[in-house]
């Protein structure tokens, strides 16, 4: 059976890794290429690289860094953040991304999702969604969690799947950066709406959080702050999971 994927996430800004709480208070956490290589060597099953891009210069810097990472990485690399055109997707793939992750622009311009999936196959398209509990339902937010959209989570996921999403990266705004554990109720809810793999994101603070998500059948989990603050390594996490009887990829 397929093994649960442990996926470190690099949030990159101005060519540096950053991490904040609730999408704010960003702190410098290192050189993305060096960190990507370290995660790969430590046993990461895949990497997600989310770029915060505002200018053309930043886009060029980002492409150069992604190419450098690709030259040394022997595992899959998903790149996202600020994708606003097919040309940008083309550039990312040419510079060595295996998949692209599209969030805000996919909501504003859903046709980009079908373009990407038609041209490169849905396996190439990760639809990233940030959502948050509102009284009695989950609502989708964009612009790094700052802007509320009109979409309810389940509705948007089904639509995105129809448009060609090959995978989802679902971040709980309520849990992101809190290290209080993944948003299991939200993940359960999401699972009922789509048949694509879902990467759980937001809230991992301890290995037990991964264990409980994986035991529930979650096939992929994203890690960020847990790794950035040098609290632990991917290798240590995987060893703990193995001791818990979870069949992760090991040895590498």
């Amino acid at each position: 059976m397929v093994k649960p994927r442990i996926i470190p996430c690099l949030d990159v800004k101005h060519g540096r890794v950053v991490k904040g709480v609730h999408f704010q208070d960003l702190k410098d956490a290192g050189d993305p290429v060096a960190l990507a290589v370290k995660y790969c060597d430590d046993g990461a099953d895949e990497l997600v690289w989310l770029d915060i891009i505002a200018t053309v210069e930043e886009e060029e810097l980002s492409l150069a860094l992604i190419q450098r990472a690709r030259e040394v990485l022997t595992i899959p690399l998903t790149v996202g953040g600020g994708i606003r055109s097919i040309r940008h997707v083309e550039e990312l793939l040419e510079h060595g991304a295996d998949k692209v992750s599209i969030n805000t622009y996919g909501i504003e311009h859903p046709e980009i999702l079908s373009h990407v999936s038609r041209r490169w196959g849905s396996q190439c398209l990760v639809v990233a969604i940030d959502a948050k509990w509102e009284e009695d339902h989950y609502q989708v937010y964009v612009h790094g969690g700052r802007t509320r959209t009109e979409h309810e989570l389940g509705d948007w996921m089904r639509r995105a799947q129809d448009l060609g999403a090959g995978e989802f990266l679902l971040t709980s705004i309520d849990r992101d950066g809190t290290q209080n554990g993944y948003d299991l109720p939200m993940l359960r809810y999401a699972r009922q709406h789509v048949s694509r793999p879902i990467i759980a994101s937001g809230g991992a603070g301890r290995v037990e959080h991964l264990t409980e998500a994986i035991r529930e059948g979650q096939q992929a989990v994203l890690l960020a702050s847990l790794l950035h603050q040098n609290q632990t390594t991917v290798g240590t996490i995987k060893q703990s999971l193995l001791e818990e009887g979870i069949d992760v990829r090991w040895p590498l």
Partner: peptide, 29 residues
Amino acid sequence: PVLPHIGWNDVTVTDHPFLWHNIVRPIFY
């Protein structure tokens, strides 16, 4: 129930010679 099949999985290899040389534990993406 969940597709695509994405991730690392074990391969049970046959004893024919193939491209498995030097691969001790065949797990692939």
